[in-house]
Write a protein that binds this DNA or RNA. Structure first.
Lengths: 325, 325
DNA sequence: TATTCTGCGTTATCCGGTTGACATACGCTT
DNA sequence: AAGCGTATGTCAACCGGATAACGCAGAATA
């Protein structure tokens, strides 16, 4: 079980350690004969170069951290899958961190960067007040979250998404549209959805009402908010939910309040992730360009890692209609 | 930007490198005064011990690989989230690999183990014929997949799940129940679901029909199978799908074939992951104990890492009814 | 024939932290 | 005064691989 190392290969092949390393890294002058000898020795011994030793010398691990609230979510699940695919193609492996409800955990993952365990980080978590982000020029990219001034953000066009969703409900004849979103204090571009909703409502002389739902609170708590909405606003005939699972909870609450969906209440969600579309195709929603967001984040991270300055990016969204309305 | 290392801390604190290392690892005799001096120096320099150097010496990375088809899936998403949570508590970080449709990628992740980049592996992928698994006593645990004789499997009771699902459809009066599952050649305990279905059908003197759907094929291809089912078997009034997303596709196909669900065709799914339950609460399904499966897999892996022999484990499943039938 | 290219070996150093062996010095106990 | 526990320092080796510098053949080229 003793690990096979370079030296063992060298002895087996009857060459020097340097030569084996040369073969491995394809440097310097080498004859076919020697290359074959070394390769044969490596095969016979089933040699695998120790990645950690190499990392130590190269000062690179080829690992990138992904820190999001939880991968058990249609949006983040798809996003992280897309990120992994792209990073893999570039030779990076991915360390996954789920930080929901645990700022300390988020900070621990951030430490991996300072530890030298990972080369870069893509974050989309929601915990506030982590000061370690406030370094300059860190190889970090954030998705749909404002982390610090120095860190570029990849976001979909939340303002436009907010308008699109609200417009659809207005077009469908809704008179009393209520919006849900994160608490206004959250550092996420999500607040732009709210702005889109509020501005459009004002333009139409409608009353704007936003209920706040923290992403990290448990489902029953979220469901309770929608129950409250219909209790406090029985006139409500339209809901613009800030994500698709909340849209589902809105529908449940509406039904429980004795309303028919979509006849009495229409609901528009947000995200449009693939598994949501598959499992709940009736839902009308604002679809984020998840694949493009992943691609963009990876591009930005690569530039960051190369020491280049990068700007935040905003991508377009579109409204997709539920198959039955 | 030059990395701060042990030696810098030692100089700053006016002690030897060994002493700093002793403080870090809490070994040997140390005075309060020295400990404080060293800690102050570490803070002033913002010292972070290099994890890779430590890994090289300790021959441990505290990283565990998770290799599943894709995290963009309600079942695997929840499973991987649960695994990350538990492994994190034990001090492990998690490397995520999505291997769908790519045996070579699965093999690459397996190589991380032989590279020394990860300490252990939890796999649930479906690619066949990867010979590297056939080593003895590797720190690998598999979930719902038979990898090799030496590797323990954590599975839910698939046979019983198959019977439960079929029984429910029989109880609901279905006469012609069709099942879908992976190709019979797949090395997964999924085949036990099929056995449960087939045996129960035989016991009731019914005809058993199983259509095969590869997990890794694209959604339209899967949907086409269900379309074919209703074309070839217009009498079909019950579907036992091997997972919940396929159950959704079955329902879509039934509706497209002019059938009403559940009046004309009843569907039972499999998995019962949290986001599926949330987004598609109407579905009756066999619920796998995902949290327990994650916990068990982590327990087994820990024992493997400690060099202990372990046995495969089977956990119970239960049927959960859709809220509207 | 002189020069350059090719194909290796030798040696030493580095990456950054860990650890064992040993030496030293101080203070306290018996 | 001898012995012991405490508190450090010094030195060297180690984890496993990468690399620069140098030397030295033999072959190819000028």
């Amino acid at each position: 079980m003793a690990r096979v190392k370079l030296q063992d290969v060298a002895e087996r092949a009857g060459v020097s350690v340097t030569t084996v390393s040369r073969v491995l890294n394809n440097r310097g002058y080498l004859s076919e004969k020697t290359i074959n000898k070394v390769h044969r020795a490596m095969e016979e011994l089933n040699y695998r170069p120790n990645a950690v030793a190499r990392q130590l010398f190269k000062q690179r691990t080829n690992l990138v951290g992904l820190v999001f609230p939880t991968v058990n979510n249609p949006f983040f699940g798809q996003l992280e899958a897309e990120l992994e695919t792209r990073l893999y193609e570039l030779g990076y492996r991915v360390v996954m961190g789920n930080s929901q409800n645990d700022p300390q955990k988020e900070e621990r993952y951030l430490q991996l960067l300072f530890n030298g365990q990972i080369d870069g980080l893509i974050v989309g978590a929601h915990n506030e007040g982590i000061t370690a982000y406030h370094n300059t020029n860190l190889p970090i990219v954030s998705i749909e979250r404002i982390v610090s001034k120095q860190i570029p953000v990849v976001a979909a066009d939340n303002y436009r998404g907010g308008r699109l969703a609200t417009q659809r409900l207005l077009d469908d004849g809704c008179q009393h549209i209520i919006h849900t979103n994160y608490p206004a204090s959250s550092s996420t571009p999500n607040q732009e959805r709210r702005r889109g909703y509020e501005e459009l409502m004002e333009e139409h002389g409608r009353q704007k009402i936003t209920y706040e739902i923290s992403f990290d609170s448990p489902d029953p708590e979220k469901a309770a908010v929608f129950t409250r909405i219909f209790a406090e606003h029985p006139e409500c005939d339209g809901i613009f939910a800030d994500n698709d699972t909340n849209a589902r909870l809105a529908i449940n609450a509406a039904v429980q309040a004795g309303k028919r969906v979509p006849e009495d209440v229409k609901v528009v969600g947000y995200d449009g992730a693939s598994s949501t579309r598959l499992l709940f195709p009736d839902l009308t929603t604002i679809q984020q360009p998840i694949a493009e967001m992943a691609q963009t984040a990876v591009d930005l991270l690569q530039k960051r890692l190369a020491g280049q300055a990068v700007e935040s990016v905003t991508l377009p969204v579109k409204l997709v209609s539920g198959i039955t309305g």
